[in-house]
Design a binder for these strands. Structure first.
Length: 958
RNA sequence: GCGGGCGUGGCGGAACUGGCAGACGCGCAGGAUUUAGGUUCCUGUUCCUCGGAGUGUGGGUUCGAGUCCCACCGCCCGCACCA
């Protein structure tokens, strides 16, 4: 198995040396014992997993969660479990400091790879998936992860996706009430319409509407709705995909196929209703600013104003963040797709406009969004009225205005917006100045100050006094703050009926249907009129029907005008169904879409809490216990998982969708927590050298040798680069190789020691041996390599050892609690290096030292720690032993060494009493020979400056 | 272009609120054990003209800067004609 013979320790040596094979034996037998004893099972406060006594014994609750994996067929490489090892060490540490830790692992198993494999082989994806999950469970178990395996789920289990479908129904049967700022059941909307508390869109009484009209109104309010809208059609995948799954260059996240905008009838989720809360509640979360910023940018809230411009096609509404610049709006630009373009186009301009629109529609979004491109556009022939100046201004179309943002129309202020400036220059449109830029602005551009914009090299953006900005009723001239200008114009606009202050978002509703096979079926049927109905709860789950035709109709990846065809469409026996939904038996058609892969990951952490509950997706009491808000920690604590660890790649997909679902569930009263993940920690990636040959093809990294700084593969020079570990770069290292050569504890320790958990770091197989040697030394300080007997003594340790031990305990506790395992390990090694010397001198290790070392190492290297613990005479697992605490008396020394600096350079060290005051320290320092020598004759009594920082250092300035 | 982050020995990385730069590990050198290689153990290891210099570069604040401020260079990540 292990090819890396140069790193593999040879067999031989003393019988009881901590060798790879000894480690393997220890590891597997402890893994068996943990499983048999249910060591890591965490008790619930209620339901089938309840155990009141155990709950009382375990202490404060703590929910630690990994982003669950997709069970890939390739299995794990050593890069995958970095985060899992981190959460395991933390969970084990917390168990030893009095916490009831919920720690489990599930599988996000719906999705494309299993389906594509099924298409190729004809094997049902469920079979592939189950096999992959079993394999992954085995690999994770071999690492010694302390999961409560009773709580493990797969998103593909019918018992799981039954509740995914149930949550969908909840969302479908809910609407967002702007007045309360929450989702509410749709029945309450009906009551409000019926009672007249809320008026219908056209003001007619609810009773006066026919059933179809009522339905339409309700459907328009639902949080999950079917809509005909421009969506991302990906012929290469045969399905539509969400905005979040389209890359910046207009291709699919998965498979990298072209994506086209097409109008299609699809399921959408009204995530935009939650835009404000999704932004504002980020303030409640203990997440990195980087991730919060990404979410804020994705939601893209901008404050501004809606302004109406009168035109022959009726009022043209624009969105602007700078209503204060309205006096400088000298033309308008509409997106080529804007519905008013048809009406506005005059006969003379008809051909030019038609040509331009055709050219624009042929372009992909990517090309349209290339900023460096010269501005293009066409005049429609019509004008609109600037509401503050009363001027007639020309209306153009141009592809730099996007139909998908704001209103698809802009007012152009060429003096204050760079794009408008370029457009006006290109087409000879007027550029009146409406602000007086400061002198420094002109100086920086090396021109003389002037309001003649033909001299300006670019638009001016910022605070500056307004000019030419009054119309009698509205006067900005003299004002010089943008904020003030905006406020003044906004109130004028609403007072005069020309617009109002408003907020716009980049976030679009979430496209929720996919035309694939391997996903959750929608719990939806359509009646004879084509109206969707969710199935009653007792009809769930809607099982994914059996078939041997898993593939959607596939198309040429560039065939924009193909149409999606779901595999479920073909199953006519399944699609047509006779049901009684309350109006007597009728024939319905099932929805043949499936949900996107993100659906199952929107709520999986909740199912870990109560995995076998068949009455509810989670018992509210159990949810409150594990995830309820912790006002005791912080008044505004939102609740949720205490620690969530995963990669940064889910910053806007999974993490945004899951927050949205969780908030809906909260609003509908199903969960007490406001947010799913209170604290998020992004672990880094393990990188590895990858090597390319002269043809640019990756070669097997294990077959590359380094000779004098040159990298060779089969004698040929190859080029080195860094990359994420994986199959595609041919640089994956399997954990099995590491078990074979060193064992799981060494692998765990190496991954934790190689750097801080949140940093990406390069894998170096040759470095692993350092941690192996440490474990051998640790073993040797407690176990005799010849006899296997423990070599501990019961007398007290010497003073120096006890002080070092207690200092180490103090630091290791702090570091582990802060997830800084790399520095905790360094301290343990230092301690062990010292204890090794004691052992060599006396032939034994004092028991108090040995036991503390084993307990401190246990979270990191649980197998060897358990084995040593048992050899120290303990019968039961150390999982719930108390983590060592430092004796404060041993943390302070009587005398400490202090550096003495002369002009900031360390010249000497002196010993001073730990509690010495400044004067004493000064006196000691200034009487030290080496200090006097270093002062080089300067009079110690007439130094220019003497700085004494007690406990730190002394600095002398002659 | 905008936003965020990061630059420390041959390598991975330590250094808490400014206070002994280079903890710990790898590698390397020397030694012990071994027939030998490997393993294991011990000692040393920032650099150089041995007195200094040194945390990407150049300035600044300070008694004192890897840490704070300014400018620049380089790398990484996210967003990108967002009105």
């Amino acid at each position: 198995m292990a090819e890396a013979t140069d790193t593999e320790p040879a067999s031989g040596g003393p019988e009881h040396r901590y060798s790879a094979s000894l480690a393997q034996g220890i590891e597997t037998s402890w893994q068996d014992r943990w499983e048999a004893e249910g060591t890591f099972e965490a008790p619930n406060p209620a339901g089938p997993l309840a155990d009141a006594d155990l709950l009382a014994e375990r202490g404060e609750k703590l929910f630690v969660l990994d982003m669950f994996p997709y069970p890939s067929g390739a299995g794990l490489h050593v890069g995958h479990p970095l985060g899992y090892i981190g959460t395991d060490v933390f969970s084990r540490f917390k168990r030893m400091t009095g916490h009831n830790v919920l720690y489990s692992m599930g599988f996000d198993a719906f999705g494309l790879p299993a389906e594509q494999y099924a298409v190729q082989t004809g094997q049902h994806p469920a079979v592939t998936t189950d096999g992959n999950i079993a394999n992954m469970r085995r690999q994770l178990r071999r690492l010694g992860l302390s999961h409560d395996t009773r709580r493990s789920i797969s998103t593909t289990d019918p018992d799981y996706y039954r509740w995914t479908q149930w949550i969908f129904s909840q969302i479908f049967n809910a609407w967002y009430d702007e007045r309360t700022g929450t989702a509410r059941p749709i029945d309450e909307l009906v009551s409000e319409f019926a009672s007249g508390e809320r008026s219908t869109p056209d003001g007619r009484p609810w009773d006066a509407l026919d059933p179809a009209e009522r339905r339409r109104i309700l459907d328009d309010h639902r949080l999950a709705y079917v809509s005909e809208a421009p969506v991302n059609w990906c012929p290469g995948l045969g399905t539509v995909v969400a905005n979040e799954e389209v890359t910046a260059d207009g291709r699919s996240d998965r498979g990298n196929y072209p994506v086209f905008k097409r109008n299609m009838r699809q399921w959408m989720m009204r995530i935009t209703a939650y835009a404000d809360r999704l932004i504002d509640d980020l303030d409640l979360l203990d997440w990195t600013d980087a991730i919060k910023t990404m979410q804020r940018n994705w939601i893209g809230r901008s404050h501004g104003a809606r302004v109406d411009f009168a035109s022959p096609a009726g009022p043209l509404t624009v969105f602007t963040t700078r209503p204060d610049t309205l006096f400088g709006a000298t033309f308008m630009v509409l997106a080529p797709e804007h519905p008013a373009v048809e009406t506005l186009t005059t006969p003379e301009q008809a051909d030019a406009v038609a040509d331009y629109r055709r050219a624009a529609s042929a372009k992909k979004d990517v090309d349209r969004q290339d900023e460096s491109r010269e501005k293009t556009g066409v005049f429609t022939g019509s004008t609109a009225t600037n509401p503050v100046t009363g001027d007639e201004i020309p209306v153009w179309i141009a592809d730099y205005v996007l139909m998908g943002y704001g209103t698809g129309a802009i007012m152009a202020v060429p003096c204050g917006d760079q794009r408008d400036f370029e457009f006006a220059r290109r087409f000879g449109l007027p550029i009146p100045a409406i602000q007086q830029p400061p002198a420094t602005w002109f100086e920086a551009r090396d021109i003389t100050p002037s309001l003649d914009t033909s001299k300006w090299p670019e638009a001016f953006v910022g605070d500056a006094p307004y000019v030419n900005s009054s119309n009698g009723a509205l006067d900005l001239d003299g004002t010089s703050s943008v904020a003030e200008g905006v406020a003044t114009v906004n109130s004028w606009l609403s007072d005069n009926g020309h617009g109002e202050a408003t907020v716009t978002y980049k976030l679009r509703d979430w496209l929720f249907s996919r035309q694939r096979y391997w996903g959750e079926p929608f719990p939806v049927v359509y009646d004879a009129d084509g109206n969707p109905h969710t199935l009653p709860d007792e009809m769930l789950p809607v099982l994914l029907p059996e078939t041997d035709s898993f593939s959607p109709r596939t198309f040429d990846a560039d065939d924009e005008f193909s149409d999606p065809e779901s595999p479920l469409d073909r199953l006519s026996d399944w699609v047509e169904v006779e049901l009684d939904l309350g109006d007597g038996p009728q024939t319905y058609r099932r929805d043949t879409n499936v949900m996107p892969q993100w659906a199952g990951s929107c709520w999986y952490e909740l199912r870990y809490l109560d995995p076998t509950n068949s009455n509810a997706f989670v018992d509210p009491e159990v949810e409150r216990y594990w995830m309820g808000p912790r006002a005791d920690l912080r008044p505004d604590h939102p609740g949720g998982v205490d620690l969530y660890v995963g990669g940064v790649e889910h910053a806007v997909l999974h993490l945004l969708y899951a927050r949205f679902w969780h908030k809906v569930l909260h609003d509908l009263g199903h969960v007490s927590s406001l947010e799913p993940y209170a604290r998020l920690f992004n672990q880094g990636y393990i990188l590895a050298n990858a090597f390319k040959d002269e043809r640019g093809i990756y070669v097997d990294a294990t077959a590359v040798t380094e000779v004098d700084g040159q990298f060779l593969h089969e004698g040929q020079p190859v080029e080195r680069e860094w990359g994420k570990m994986g199959k595609s770069l041919k640089n994956a290292v399997s954990p099995d190789e590491m078990y074979e050569a060193y064992g799981a504890d060494t692998l765990r320790l190496y991954e934790m020691a190689m750097g801080p958990l949140d940093a990406s770091r390069p894998w170096e197989t040759r470095d692993v041996v350092g941690m192996y040697r440490f474990l051998q030394r640790l073993w040797r300080t407690i176990v005799d390599e010849e006899s296997g007997a423990a070599t501990v003594s019961d007398g007290p340790a010497d003073e120096e050892t006890r002080r070092l031990l207690n200092r180490t305990i103090d630091i290791v506790r702090t570091e582990m609690d802060a997830l800084r395992f790399n520095t905790a390990i360094a301290k343990l090694i230092e301690l062990n290096n010292h204890v090794t010397k004691v052992h060599q001198a006396t032939g034994s290790t004092p028991r108090e030292v040995a036991e503390s070392m084993v307990l401190m190492a246990a979270p990191l290297v649980p197998h060897i720690a358990e084995e040593l613990w048992s050899r120290l005479g303990h019968d039961s697992t150390l999982t719930y032993e108390e983590f060592p605490s430092a004796d404060p008396a041993l943390l302070v020394d009587d005398e400490i060494e202090m550096p003495v600096q002369i002009k900031g350079k360390v010249r000497a060290r002196v010993m001073v009493p730990a509690d010495a005051d400044e004067a004493t320290i000064r006196q000691i320092a200034l009487s030290d020979e080496r200090v006097l020598a270093a002062l080089d004759g300067a009079d110690p009594e007439s130094l220019r400056k003497v700085i004494v920082v007690p406990g730190r250092m002394v600095n002398l300035v002659p």
